[in-house]
């Protein structure tokens, strides 16, 4: 494939990357010295967490659904990390698999409600989100019962050869996720049921099971992000996952993944994550008031989604 035709085919994704780059240039021009190594490292860590949750969100959205329960799956994972390890490094070996399993089970709860009972995804995950919240707040009384181990703190805040470990981790997981979504039979089936589940059913796909599994994947990534985030913050708090609810949906949508399911690429989602993080960086670097930040955020969100969905419309 020639470079020209490649760009043409992936124009919308390409444009999204350009927007992210422009935002970075924009910061550097307006605040010379802002785009230094330290700030970029902080931005890369922020992007990694959003990226991990966006992977899960994208899996759910590809099937034509949506997962609004990411915030409290995320927070439960973070609280469990503190409770199960009590700050002990060696306890991570059993705690991490257990918490990831909890994440997968919470996802399975969503998936079963959606695929087997037939509840609309938005309603099911909205309800499970407050159920998870109630469970956590009811059991713990709202106070974290421990802190994350030092090893996790080093991992979430540290860097390797000048690059943050979180970014390297995100890249590694991204490669695996990309292979799963774009190159494996599993990924093809995800797109298939998102496109048309009746056709998928008649071509021999277990649609209900596939749909459930998508939410399990989402629960897995939400839990993974939550575990790591517990090392990022000095103290665990309720509502630490809240920003990831709408941000993950926005990142996926900006990346050109159709919310109706069945189309879009992971590369686009990465671009969406970068745009959102850069936008956040620009807004805070310029020192705007909260009000102006929110207004610009909304306008850019709308324009970015508009730009990235333009090409799709032409092809349809």
């Amino acid at each position: 494939m020639k470079a020209g035709s490649f760009v043409k085919k992936n124009f919308s994704v390409f444009m999204t990357f350009v927007i992210a780059l422009l935002l970075l240039v924009f910061i550097s021009v307006l605040r010379p010295g802002y785009a230094n190594v330290n700030n970029l490292r902080v931005l890369s860590i922020t992007a990694s967490f959003l990226g991990l949750t966006a992977m899960g969100q994208m899996t759910a959205i590809l099937t034509g659904g949506m997962d609004l329960s990411i915030p409290w799956m995320f927070t439960i994972a973070a609280f469990l990390t503190g409770n199960l390890t009590q700050g002990g490094n060696e306890k991570l070996f059993f705690a991490v698999p257990v918490i990831l399993l909890v994440g997968v089970l919470m996802g399975a709860f969503n998936g079963i409600g959606i695929a087997y009972v037939g509840i609309a995804p938005v309603i099911m995950t909205m309800a499970s989100n407050i159920i998870f919240q109630g469970l956590l707040v009811g059991i713990t009384g709202g106070t974290p019962g421990g802190t994350a181990p030092q090893a996790l703190k080093d991992f979430a805040n540290g860097s390797l050869g000048g690059v943050s470990t979180m970014l390297l981790f995100w890249i590694a997981i991204s490669v695996a996720f990309y292979v799963m979504i774009a190159r494996s039979p599993y990924g093809r089936r995800l797109y298939a049921i998102g496109n048309n589940d009746t056709v998928a059913l008649f071509s021999g796909i277990n649609v209900k099971l596939m749909r459930t599994s998508a939410y399990m994947v989402c629960g897995f990534f939400a839990a993974l992000a939550g575990i790591l985030f517990s090392g990022r913050v000095s103290q665990l708090y309720l509502g630490m996952g809240d920003p990831y609810q709408m941000q993950s949906v926005s990142a996926v949508a900006i990346g050109g993944v159709s919310l109706l399911g069945g189309s879009g690429s992971y590369i686009g989602t990465v671009a969406g994550v970068l745009v959102l993080v850069m936008l956040d960086g620009v807004l805070s670097a310029l020192g705007f008031a909260q009000s102006v930040q929110k207004i610009i955020y909304g306008v850019v969100l709308m324009l970015a989604v508009l730009l990235s969905s333009r090409k799709q419309k032409g092809r349809r």
């Binding site: 949906v249 909260q290 929110k294 207004i295 909304g298 306008v299 969100l301 508009l306």
Partner: peptide, 19 residues
């Protein structure tokens, strides 16, 4: 565009104006 995304964007703008 999907109503979810469009109204999410206007929601941000409205929150900003309220502030």
């Amino acid at each position: 565009l999907q109503p979810f995304i469009v109204t999410l964007a206007t929601q941000y703008v409205c929150y900003g104006i309220a502030l």
